[in-house]
């Protein structure tokens, strides 16, 4: 069994969590939310690529995964565009 890779990914996830919580405590200003979402996306990517095995999946499954995220992005983006341009 290969314990090394999952444990490294887990440590990476914990480090990113510490970073985002640290930022929350220490940083103020308009850029903080953006950084929180960048870190959350990085953590989600680690989970999806390694724990959900996108790295070893065929192209079609990757396409579905990207498609799901893309549609969700459109849903939120267009909703916000409507609210912000009222």
């Amino acid at each position: 069994m290969n314990y090394r890779q999952p444990i490294l990914i887990w440590l990476g996830l914990l480090a990113l969590l510490a970073l985002t919580v640290g930022l929350n405590v220490l940083m103020t200003g308009p850029w903080r939310p953006l950084l929180h979402y960048v870190i959350a996306t990085a953590m989600a990517a680690l989970l999806m690529v390694f724990f959900m095995r996108l790295r070893a999946s065929d192209g079609l499954i990757r396409l579905f995964a990207v498609g799901g995220v893309l549609w969700l992005g459109l849903l939120i983006l267009i909703t916000l565009a409507e609210v912000l341009t009222r």
Binding site: P6, I7, I9, W10, L13, L14, L17, L47, F50, F51
Partner: peptide, 8 residues
């Protein structure tokens, strides 16, 4: 996150 590790 740790439960994600044990599941993997």
């Amino acid at each position: 996150l740790t439960s994600g590790l044990t599941m993997a």
